[in-house]
Design a protein around this nucleic acid. Structure first.
Lengths: 218, 218
DNA sequence: ATAATGAGAACGAACGTTCGCACTCTTGGT
DNA sequence: ACCAAGAGTGCGAACGTTCGTTCTCATTAT
Protein backbone atom coordinates (compact mmCIF):
# COMPACT_ATOMS: atom_id res chain seq x y z
CA UNK A 1 0.00 0.00 0.00
CA UNK A 2 1.12 3.56 -0.72
CA UNK A 3 -0.84 5.02 2.14
CA UNK A 4 2.29 6.36 3.80
CA UNK A 5 3.52 8.52 0.92
CA UNK A 6 0.00 9.70 0.26
CA UNK A 7 -0.68 10.79 3.80
CA UNK A 8 2.67 12.62 3.85
CA UNK A 9 1.48 14.75 0.96
CA UNK A 10 -1.72 15.61 2.78
CA UNK A 11 -0.20 18.64 4.58
CA UNK A 12 -0.73 20.94 1.61
CA UNK A 13 -3.05 23.88 2.09
CA UNK A 14 -5.08 23.18 -1.06
CA UNK A 15 -8.55 21.85 -0.47
CA UNK A 16 -9.49 20.10 -3.64
CA UNK A 17 -7.01 19.49 -6.41
CA UNK A 18 -3.62 18.82 -4.83
CA UNK A 19 -4.31 16.15 -2.20
CA UNK A 20 -4.23 12.76 -3.89
CA UNK A 21 -6.97 11.38 -1.67
CA UNK A 22 -9.71 13.51 -0.18
CA UNK A 23 -11.53 12.29 2.89
CA UNK A 24 -14.53 11.11 0.90
CA UNK A 25 -12.27 9.20 -1.46
CA UNK A 26 -10.54 7.51 1.43
CA UNK A 27 -13.87 6.48 2.90
CA UNK A 28 -14.96 5.05 -0.41
CA UNK A 29 -11.68 3.18 -0.81
CA UNK A 30 -12.04 1.64 2.64
CA UNK A 31 -15.65 0.66 1.97
CA UNK A 32 -14.52 -0.99 -1.24
CA UNK A 33 -11.79 -2.85 0.59
CA UNK A 34 -14.39 -4.21 2.99
CA UNK A 35 -16.71 -5.25 0.19
CA UNK A 36 -13.92 -7.06 -1.62
CA UNK A 37 -12.87 -8.88 1.53
CA UNK A 38 -16.48 -9.78 2.27
CA UNK A 39 -16.97 -11.12 -1.24
CA UNK A 40 -13.93 -13.37 -0.79
CA UNK A 41 -15.26 -14.65 2.53
CA UNK A 42 -18.79 -15.16 1.20
CA UNK A 43 -17.50 -17.17 -1.73
CA UNK A 44 -15.42 -19.25 0.68
CA UNK A 45 -17.94 -19.77 3.49
CA UNK A 46 -21.34 -18.55 2.33
CA UNK A 47 -23.36 -15.60 3.57
CA UNK A 48 -24.41 -17.26 6.79
CA UNK A 49 -21.21 -19.21 7.25
CA UNK A 50 -18.81 -16.28 7.03
CA UNK A 51 -18.41 -14.41 10.30
CA UNK A 52 -17.75 -10.72 10.74
CA UNK A 53 -14.45 -11.55 12.41
CA UNK A 54 -13.47 -13.53 9.33
CA UNK A 55 -14.32 -10.56 7.12
CA UNK A 56 -12.38 -8.25 9.41
CA UNK A 57 -9.32 -10.50 9.23
CA UNK A 58 -9.59 -10.67 5.42
CA UNK A 59 -9.87 -6.89 5.21
CA UNK A 60 -7.04 -6.38 7.72
CA UNK A 61 -9.31 -4.35 9.93
CA UNK A 62 -10.72 -4.44 13.45
CA UNK A 63 -14.48 -4.89 14.05
CA UNK A 64 -14.63 -1.39 15.47
CA UNK A 65 -13.15 0.05 12.29
CA UNK A 66 -15.34 -2.02 9.97
CA UNK A 67 -18.52 -0.95 11.73
CA UNK A 68 -17.67 2.68 10.96
CA UNK A 69 -18.41 1.86 7.32
CA UNK A 70 -21.25 -0.63 7.43
CA UNK A 71 -23.88 -0.72 10.17
CA UNK A 72 -24.48 -4.47 9.94
CA UNK A 73 -23.63 -7.69 8.20
CA UNK A 74 -26.88 -7.53 6.27
CA UNK A 75 -25.98 -4.15 4.86
CA UNK A 76 -22.76 -5.64 3.47
CA UNK A 77 -24.68 -8.49 1.86
CA UNK A 78 -27.15 -6.06 0.34
CA UNK A 79 -24.38 -3.82 -0.95
CA UNK A 80 -22.70 -6.78 -2.64
CA UNK A 81 -25.94 -8.05 -4.14
CA UNK A 82 -26.74 -4.59 -5.46
CA UNK A 83 -23.28 -4.19 -6.93
CA UNK A 84 -23.49 -7.54 -8.68
CA UNK A 85 -26.85 -6.54 -10.07
CA UNK A 86 -25.67 -3.29 -11.59
CA UNK A 87 -22.58 -5.00 -12.93
CA UNK A 88 -24.72 -7.66 -14.58
CA UNK A 89 -27.01 -5.11 -16.14
CA UNK A 90 -24.03 -3.29 -17.57
CA UNK A 91 -22.63 -6.51 -18.99
CA UNK A 92 -25.94 -7.45 -20.55
CA UNK A 93 -26.35 -4.09 -22.22
CA UNK A 94 -23.03 -4.57 -23.97
CA UNK A 95 -23.50 -8.18 -24.95
CA UNK A 96 -27.02 -7.61 -26.27
CA UNK A 97 -25.72 -5.01 -28.70
CA UNK A 98 -25.26 -7.43 -31.61
CA UNK A 99 -27.69 -6.53 -34.43
CA UNK A 100 -28.76 -10.12 -35.04
CA UNK A 101 -31.23 -11.16 -32.36
CA UNK A 102 -30.07 -14.78 -32.16
CA UNK A 103 -26.41 -13.80 -31.91
CA UNK A 104 -27.25 -11.16 -29.32
CA UNK A 105 -28.89 -13.75 -27.08
CA UNK A 106 -26.16 -16.35 -27.56
CA UNK A 107 -23.59 -13.66 -26.91
CA UNK A 108 -25.28 -12.65 -23.66
CA UNK A 109 -25.28 -16.14 -22.23
CA UNK A 110 -21.73 -16.90 -23.30
CA UNK A 111 -20.46 -13.62 -21.87
CA UNK A 112 -22.09 -14.31 -18.54
CA UNK A 113 -20.63 -17.81 -18.43
CA UNK A 114 -17.19 -16.55 -19.33
CA UNK A 115 -17.12 -13.59 -16.94
CA UNK A 116 -18.52 -15.55 -14.01
CA UNK A 117 -15.89 -18.18 -14.51
CA UNK A 118 -12.97 -15.82 -14.98
CA UNK A 119 -13.82 -13.71 -11.95
CA UNK A 120 -14.58 -16.86 -9.94
CA UNK A 121 -17.97 -15.46 -9.04
CA UNK A 122 -20.07 -18.50 -10.00
CA UNK A 123 -20.30 -19.68 -6.36
CA UNK A 124 -21.33 -16.20 -5.24
CA UNK A 125 -24.15 -16.35 -7.75
CA UNK A 126 -25.39 -19.62 -6.23
CA UNK A 127 -25.10 -18.08 -2.78
CA UNK A 128 -27.07 -14.99 -3.75
CA UNK A 129 -29.81 -17.14 -5.26
CA UNK A 130 -30.13 -19.11 -2.03
CA UNK A 131 -30.01 -16.01 0.15
CA UNK A 132 -32.74 -14.44 -1.96
CA UNK A 133 -35.06 -17.21 -0.79
CA UNK A 134 -35.29 -15.60 2.63
CA UNK A 135 -33.65 -12.16 2.59
CA UNK A 136 -36.17 -9.71 1.09
CA UNK A 137 -33.54 -7.11 0.23
CA UNK A 138 -31.46 -9.62 -1.71
CA UNK A 139 -34.60 -10.99 -3.35
CA UNK A 140 -35.48 -7.50 -4.51
CA UNK A 141 -31.99 -7.12 -5.99
CA UNK A 142 -32.37 -10.40 -7.86
CA UNK A 143 -35.84 -9.64 -9.11
CA UNK A 144 -34.80 -6.18 -10.19
CA UNK A 145 -31.90 -7.67 -12.11
CA UNK A 146 -34.11 -10.30 -13.73
CA UNK A 147 -36.70 -7.69 -14.57
CA UNK A 148 -34.06 -5.61 -16.32
CA UNK A 149 -32.87 -8.69 -18.17
CA UNK A 150 -36.35 -9.55 -19.32
CA UNK A 151 -37.25 -6.01 -20.29
CA UNK A 152 -34.13 -5.54 -22.37
CA UNK A 153 -34.57 -8.87 -24.08
CA UNK A 154 -38.31 -8.31 -24.38
CA UNK A 155 -37.78 -5.15 -26.42
CA UNK A 156 -35.35 -6.88 -28.75
CA UNK A 157 -37.49 -9.96 -29.23
CA UNK A 158 -40.85 -8.27 -29.63
CA UNK A 159 -39.35 -5.82 -32.12
CA UNK A 160 -37.99 -8.72 -34.11
CA UNK A 161 -41.39 -10.41 -34.02
CA UNK A 162 -43.14 -7.24 -35.16
CA UNK A 163 -40.72 -6.89 -38.03
CA UNK A 164 -41.44 -10.46 -39.06
CA UNK A 165 -37.84 -11.49 -38.59
CA UNK A 166 -38.64 -14.35 -36.21
CA UNK A 167 -41.63 -16.56 -35.47
CA UNK A 168 -41.06 -17.98 -31.94
CA UNK A 169 -42.49 -21.38 -31.04
CA UNK A 170 -44.26 -19.94 -27.99
CA UNK A 171 -45.52 -16.51 -26.85
CA UNK A 172 -42.89 -14.06 -25.62
CA UNK A 173 -44.31 -14.24 -22.08
CA UNK A 174 -43.16 -17.85 -21.87
CA UNK A 175 -40.10 -17.50 -24.06
CA UNK A 176 -38.28 -15.02 -21.84
CA UNK A 177 -38.53 -16.63 -18.39
CA UNK A 178 -37.57 -20.00 -19.84
CA UNK A 179 -34.56 -18.59 -21.66
CA UNK A 180 -33.47 -16.70 -18.55
CA UNK A 181 -33.87 -19.87 -16.45
CA UNK A 182 -31.80 -21.84 -18.93
CA UNK A 183 -29.12 -19.15 -18.91
CA UNK A 184 -29.06 -19.21 -15.12
CA UNK A 185 -28.59 -22.96 -15.07
CA UNK A 186 -25.68 -22.64 -17.47
CA UNK A 187 -24.06 -19.86 -15.45
CA UNK A 188 -24.53 -21.53 -12.05
CA UNK A 189 -22.99 -24.75 -13.25
CA UNK A 190 -19.75 -23.03 -14.14
CA UNK A 191 -19.28 -25.28 -17.15
CA UNK A 192 -15.72 -24.15 -18.01
CA UNK A 193 -14.53 -25.47 -14.63
CA UNK A 194 -15.66 -28.92 -15.74
CA UNK A 195 -13.37 -28.80 -18.71
CA UNK A 196 -16.05 -28.23 -21.29
CA UNK A 197 -15.25 -26.68 -24.63
CA UNK A 198 -17.03 -23.33 -24.69
CA UNK A 199 -17.22 -23.35 -28.47
CA UNK A 200 -19.31 -26.51 -28.35
CA UNK A 201 -21.47 -25.09 -25.58
CA UNK A 202 -22.03 -22.06 -27.79
CA UNK A 203 -23.06 -24.30 -30.65
CA UNK A 204 -25.68 -25.97 -28.49
CA UNK A 205 -27.07 -22.70 -27.23
CA UNK A 206 -27.20 -21.23 -30.72
CA UNK A 207 -28.97 -24.31 -31.97
CA UNK A 208 -31.51 -24.17 -29.14
CA UNK A 209 -32.14 -20.43 -29.48
CA UNK A 210 -32.42 -20.60 -33.27
CA UNK A 211 -34.86 -23.49 -33.09
CA UNK A 212 -37.09 -21.65 -30.63
CA UNK A 213 -36.98 -18.22 -32.27
CA UNK A 214 -37.25 -19.59 -35.80
CA UNK A 215 -35.71 -16.70 -37.71
CA UNK A 216 -37.22 -16.12 -41.13
CA UNK A 217 -34.37 -16.73 -43.53
CA UNK A 218 -36.18 -16.78 -46.85
CA UNK B 1 -52.04 -39.27 16.08
CA UNK B 2 -53.26 -42.75 16.96
CA UNK B 3 -50.34 -43.44 19.27
CA UNK B 4 -52.63 -43.95 22.25
CA UNK B 5 -54.70 -46.75 20.80
CA UNK B 6 -51.59 -48.36 19.39
CA UNK B 7 -49.70 -48.43 22.66
CA UNK B 8 -52.79 -49.87 24.33
CA UNK B 9 -52.62 -52.79 21.96
CA UNK B 10 -48.98 -53.37 22.82
CA UNK B 11 -49.70 -55.64 25.79
CA UNK B 12 -50.19 -58.71 23.65
CA UNK B 13 -47.77 -61.56 24.19
CA UNK B 14 -47.04 -62.07 20.50
CA UNK B 15 -43.59 -61.00 19.40
CA UNK B 16 -43.89 -60.32 15.72
CA UNK B 17 -47.25 -60.23 13.99
CA UNK B 18 -49.76 -58.74 16.38
CA UNK B 19 -48.13 -55.54 17.65
CA UNK B 20 -48.86 -52.73 15.18
CA UNK B 21 -45.52 -51.03 15.79
CA UNK B 22 -42.35 -52.83 16.76
CA UNK B 23 -39.60 -50.91 18.47
CA UNK B 24 -37.58 -50.62 15.30
CA UNK B 25 -40.60 -49.34 13.41
CA UNK B 26 -41.20 -46.71 16.06
CA UNK B 27 -37.61 -45.56 15.84
CA UNK B 28 -37.85 -45.27 12.09
CA UNK B 29 -41.11 -43.35 12.33
CA UNK B 30 -39.55 -40.88 14.77
CA UNK B 31 -36.48 -40.44 12.59
CA UNK B 32 -38.76 -39.76 9.65
CA UNK B 33 -40.69 -37.22 11.68
CA UNK B 34 -37.45 -35.42 12.44
CA UNK B 35 -36.35 -35.45 8.80
CA UNK B 36 -39.69 -34.06 7.67
CA UNK B 37 -39.57 -31.29 10.25
CA UNK B 38 -35.97 -30.51 9.34
CA UNK B 39 -36.86 -30.32 5.66
CA UNK B 40 -39.63 -27.82 6.46
CA UNK B 41 -37.23 -25.72 8.52
CA UNK B 42 -34.46 -25.89 5.94
CA UNK B 43 -36.81 -24.75 3.19
CA UNK B 44 -37.95 -21.89 5.43
CA UNK B 45 -34.61 -20.75 6.84
CA UNK B 46 -31.78 -22.49 4.97
CA UNK B 47 -29.35 -25.10 6.25
CA UNK B 48 -27.27 -22.64 8.20
CA UNK B 49 -30.17 -20.40 9.15
CA UNK B 50 -32.35 -23.08 10.71
CA UNK B 51 -31.46 -23.85 14.32
CA UNK B 52 -31.76 -27.18 16.07
CA UNK B 53 -34.24 -25.62 18.47
CA UNK B 54 -36.36 -24.59 15.49
CA UNK B 55 -36.27 -28.13 14.14
CA UNK B 56 -37.15 -29.50 17.58
CA UNK B 57 -40.14 -27.19 17.81
CA UNK B 58 -41.28 -28.17 14.32
CA UNK B 59 -40.96 -31.87 15.18
CA UNK B 60 -42.66 -31.39 18.55
CA UNK B 61 -39.67 -32.82 20.32
CA UNK B 62 -37.05 -31.75 22.86
CA UNK B 63 -33.37 -31.45 21.92
CA UNK B 64 -32.55 -34.39 24.18
CA UNK B 65 -35.04 -36.59 22.36
CA UNK B 66 -33.93 -35.49 18.91
CA UNK B 67 -30.30 -36.22 19.65
CA UNK B 68 -31.23 -39.84 20.38
CA UNK B 69 -31.90 -40.21 16.66
CA UNK B 70 -29.29 -38.02 14.99
CA UNK B 71 -25.84 -37.31 16.43
CA UNK B 72 -25.52 -33.87 14.87
CA UNK B 73 -27.09 -31.26 12.66
CA UNK B 74 -24.78 -32.24 9.84
CA UNK B 75 -25.97 -35.82 9.94
CA UNK B 76 -29.53 -34.57 9.42
CA UNK B 77 -28.46 -32.48 6.45
CA UNK B 78 -26.62 -35.42 4.96
CA UNK B 79 -29.57 -37.74 5.51
CA UNK B 80 -31.87 -35.30 3.73
CA UNK B 81 -29.47 -34.77 0.86
CA UNK B 82 -29.03 -38.53 0.45
CA UNK B 83 -32.78 -39.08 0.52
CA UNK B 84 -33.36 -36.43 -2.11
CA UNK B 85 -30.71 -38.01 -4.26
CA UNK B 86 -32.19 -41.52 -4.18
CA UNK B 87 -35.64 -40.07 -4.75
CA UNK B 88 -34.38 -38.18 -7.78
CA UNK B 89 -32.68 -41.24 -9.21
CA UNK B 90 -35.90 -43.20 -8.84
CA UNK B 91 -37.87 -40.47 -10.55
CA UNK B 92 -35.41 -40.27 -13.40
CA UNK B 93 -35.45 -44.00 -14.01
CA UNK B 94 -39.20 -43.86 -14.49
CA UNK B 95 -39.32 -40.74 -16.60
CA UNK B 96 -36.51 -41.91 -18.89
CA UNK B 97 -38.47 -45.06 -19.75
CA UNK B 98 -40.08 -43.60 -22.89
CA UNK B 99 -38.81 -45.48 -25.98
CA UNK B 100 -38.22 -42.30 -27.99
CA UNK B 101 -35.00 -40.63 -26.83
CA UNK B 102 -36.21 -37.06 -27.34
CA UNK B 103 -39.46 -37.70 -25.51
CA UNK B 104 -37.59 -39.48 -22.73
CA UNK B 105 -35.40 -36.41 -22.13
CA UNK B 106 -38.26 -33.93 -22.36
CA UNK B 107 -40.26 -36.15 -20.04
CA UNK B 108 -37.45 -36.22 -17.49
CA UNK B 109 -37.12 -32.47 -17.27
CA UNK B 110 -40.87 -31.86 -17.18
CA UNK B 111 -41.34 -34.47 -14.45
CA UNK B 112 -38.63 -32.89 -12.33
CA UNK B 113 -40.15 -29.44 -12.76
CA UNK B 114 -43.62 -30.71 -11.90
CA UNK B 115 -42.62 -32.79 -8.88
CA UNK B 116 -40.35 -30.12 -7.42
CA UNK B 117 -43.12 -27.60 -7.69
CA UNK B 118 -45.88 -29.82 -6.32
CA UNK B 119 -43.85 -30.96 -3.34
CA UNK B 120 -42.58 -27.39 -2.79
CA UNK B 121 -39.03 -28.66 -2.85
CA UNK B 122 -37.61 -26.19 -5.39
CA UNK B 123 -36.10 -23.98 -2.63
CA UNK B 124 -34.53 -27.02 -0.97
CA UNK B 125 -32.84 -27.82 -4.25
CA UNK B 126 -31.31 -24.33 -4.34
CA UNK B 127 -30.24 -24.73 -0.74
CA UNK B 128 -28.59 -28.08 -1.37
CA UNK B 129 -26.70 -26.66 -4.33
CA UNK B 130 -25.35 -23.83 -2.20
CA UNK B 131 -24.49 -26.12 0.70
CA UNK B 132 -22.63 -28.42 -1.67
CA UNK B 133 -20.20 -25.56 -2.31
CA UNK B 134 -18.63 -26.11 1.10
CA UNK B 135 -20.00 -29.27 2.72
CA UNK B 136 -18.10 -32.23 1.23
CA UNK B 137 -20.73 -34.79 2.22
CA UNK B 138 -23.49 -32.85 0.50
CA UNK B 139 -21.26 -32.25 -2.50
CA UNK B 140 -20.69 -35.98 -2.79
CA UNK B 141 -24.44 -36.55 -2.69
CA UNK B 142 -24.95 -34.03 -5.48
CA UNK B 143 -22.13 -35.36 -7.61
CA UNK B 144 -23.31 -38.91 -7.13
CA UNK B 145 -26.79 -37.88 -8.21
CA UNK B 146 -25.47 -36.01 -11.23
CA UNK B 147 -23.24 -38.92 -12.14
CA UNK B 148 -26.21 -41.25 -12.09
CA UNK B 149 -28.16 -38.79 -14.21
CA UNK B 150 -25.41 -38.54 -16.75
CA UNK B 151 -24.73 -42.26 -16.87
CA UNK B 152 -28.35 -43.14 -17.42
CA UNK B 153 -28.75 -40.50 -20.08
CA UNK B 154 -25.37 -41.37 -21.54
CA UNK B 155 -26.45 -44.96 -22.18
CA UNK B 156 -29.64 -43.86 -23.88
CA UNK B 157 -28.00 -41.20 -25.99
CA UNK B 158 -24.94 -43.14 -27.08
CA UNK B 159 -27.09 -46.13 -27.97
CA UNK B 160 -29.26 -43.90 -30.10
CA UNK B 161 -26.16 -42.45 -31.77
CA UNK B 162 -24.76 -45.93 -32.46
CA UNK B 163 -28.04 -46.99 -34.00
CA UNK B 164 -27.94 -43.95 -36.24
CA UNK B 165 -31.18 -42.60 -34.82
CA UNK B 166 -29.72 -39.22 -33.89
CA UNK B 167 -26.80 -37.06 -35.01
CA UNK B 168 -26.12 -34.61 -32.14
CA UNK B 169 -24.66 -31.18 -32.90
CA UNK B 170 -21.82 -31.71 -30.41
CA UNK B 171 -20.04 -34.72 -28.83
CA UNK B 172 -21.89 -36.53 -26.05
CA UNK B 173 -19.29 -35.35 -23.52
CA UNK B 174 -20.48 -31.79 -24.00
CA UNK B 175 -24.10 -32.61 -24.71
CA UNK B 176 -24.84 -34.19 -21.34
CA UNK B 177 -23.44 -31.62 -18.89
CA UNK B 178 -25.06 -28.79 -20.84
CA UNK B 179 -28.42 -30.52 -20.92
CA UNK B 180 -28.20 -31.30 -17.21
CA UNK B 181 -27.25 -27.68 -16.47
CA UNK B 182 -30.20 -26.43 -18.50
CA UNK B 183 -32.50 -28.82 -16.69
CA UNK B 184 -31.20 -27.61 -13.35
CA UNK B 185 -31.85 -24.01 -14.27
CA UNK B 186 -35.40 -24.85 -15.24
CA UNK B 187 -36.00 -26.83 -12.05
CA UNK B 188 -34.64 -24.35 -9.55
CA UNK B 189 -36.42 -21.45 -11.15
CA UNK B 190 -39.71 -23.11 -10.23
CA UNK B 191 -41.38 -21.86 -13.41
CA UNK B 192 -44.92 -22.98 -12.50
CA UNK B 193 -44.88 -20.63 -9.51
CA UNK B 194 -44.44 -17.75 -11.95
CA UNK B 195 -47.66 -18.65 -13.69
CA UNK B 196 -46.06 -20.12 -16.77
CA UNK B 197 -47.94 -22.57 -18.95
CA UNK B 198 -46.11 -25.87 -18.62
CA UNK B 199 -47.32 -27.04 -22.02
CA UNK B 200 -45.51 -24.11 -23.63
CA UNK B 201 -42.42 -24.76 -21.58
CA UNK B 202 -42.53 -28.33 -22.78
CA UNK B 203 -42.76 -27.14 -26.37
CA UNK B 204 -39.64 -25.05 -25.93
CA UNK B 205 -37.69 -27.86 -24.32
CA UNK B 206 -38.76 -30.33 -26.99
CA UNK B 207 -37.74 -27.87 -29.69
CA UNK B 208 -34.34 -27.32 -28.10
CA UNK B 209 -33.67 -31.00 -27.48
CA UNK B 210 -34.80 -32.00 -30.96
CA UNK B 211 -32.62 -29.36 -32.56
CA UNK B 212 -29.55 -30.49 -30.66
CA UNK B 213 -30.05 -34.24 -31.00
CA UNK B 214 -31.17 -34.01 -34.64
CA UNK B 215 -33.15 -37.26 -34.85
CA UNK B 216 -32.94 -38.94 -38.27
CA UNK B 217 -36.50 -38.94 -39.52
CA UNK B 218 -36.01 -40.04 -43.08
C1' DA C 1 -9.98 21.81 20.29
C1' DT C 2 -12.67 18.83 17.68
C1' DA C 3 -14.04 15.45 14.68
C1' DA C 4 -12.84 11.19 12.29
C1' DT C 5 -10.83 6.82 12.46
C1' DG C 6 -8.90 2.54 14.29
C1' DA C 7 -7.82 -1.23 17.69
C1' DG C 8 -9.34 -4.78 20.43
C1' DA C 9 -11.59 -6.21 24.63
C1' DA C 10 -16.08 -7.19 25.92
C1' DC C 11 -21.20 -7.71 25.55
C1' DG C 12 -25.65 -10.24 25.40
C1' DA C 13 -27.85 -13.49 22.52
C1' DA C 14 -28.13 -17.58 20.16
C1' DC C 15 -26.00 -21.52 18.59
C1' DG C 16 -25.17 -26.86 18.61
C1' DT C 17 -24.82 -30.03 21.96
C1' DT C 18 -24.82 -32.50 26.60
C1' DC C 19 -26.47 -33.74 31.01
C1' DG C 20 -29.32 -35.55 34.69
C1' DC C 21 -33.47 -37.13 35.75
C1' DA C 22 -38.15 -39.10 35.06
C1' DC C 23 -40.94 -42.13 32.75
C1' DT C 24 -42.25 -46.26 29.92
C1' DC C 25 -41.58 -50.27 27.99
C1' DT C 26 -39.49 -55.17 27.81
C1' DT C 27 -37.66 -59.01 30.26
C1' DG C 28 -36.78 -62.89 33.46
C1' DG C 29 -36.83 -65.00 37.95
C1' DT C 30 -40.11 -66.17 41.39
C1' DA D 1 -49.35 -63.05 38.06
C1' DC D 2 -46.07 -60.03 39.78
C1' DC D 3 -42.24 -57.33 40.72
C1' DA D 4 -37.21 -55.86 40.24
C1' DA D 5 -33.96 -54.66 36.89
C1' DG D 6 -32.41 -52.62 32.88
C1' DA D 7 -32.68 -50.62 28.53
C1' DG D 8 -35.03 -47.19 25.61
C1' DT D 9 -36.96 -42.78 25.30
C1' DG D 10 -38.25 -37.95 26.37
C1' DC D 11 -37.81 -33.59 28.66
C1' DG D 12 -35.83 -29.15 29.41
C1' DA D 13 -32.26 -26.76 31.89
C1' DA D 14 -27.65 -25.78 31.18
C1' DC D 15 -23.05 -26.03 28.98
C1' DG D 16 -19.22 -23.91 26.43
C1' DT D 17 -18.59 -21.56 22.18
C1' DT D 18 -19.18 -18.39 18.72
C1' DC D 19 -21.88 -14.97 16.73
C1' DG D 20 -22.93 -9.95 15.44
C1' DT D 21 -22.32 -5.92 17.56
C1' DT D 22 -20.85 -2.19 20.92
C1' DC D 23 -17.83 0.21 24.00
C1' DT D 24 -13.77 2.49 25.47
C1' DC D 25 -9.85 4.48 24.61
C1' DA D 26 -5.86 5.79 21.79
C1' DT D 27 -4.28 8.00 17.54
C1' DT D 28 -4.58 10.94 13.63
C1' DA D 29 -6.25 14.73 10.70
C1' DT D 30 -8.46 19.27 10.47
Amino acid sequence: MKTDSETLQGDLDDDEAASPLTRAEKREAQALRILDAAKTCFVRSGFQGASMHEICREAGMSPGALYRYFPSKESIIEAIAAKERSHDAELLTESLAHPDIVEALVNSVMTQIRVRHETRMAPLFTEIRAEALRNPAVLESCECSMRQFREMIFRRVSTAVAEGKIRPTVPVETLLPVMVAIGEGLVLNDLPSKGLDLAQVETMIRTAVTANLRPVTS
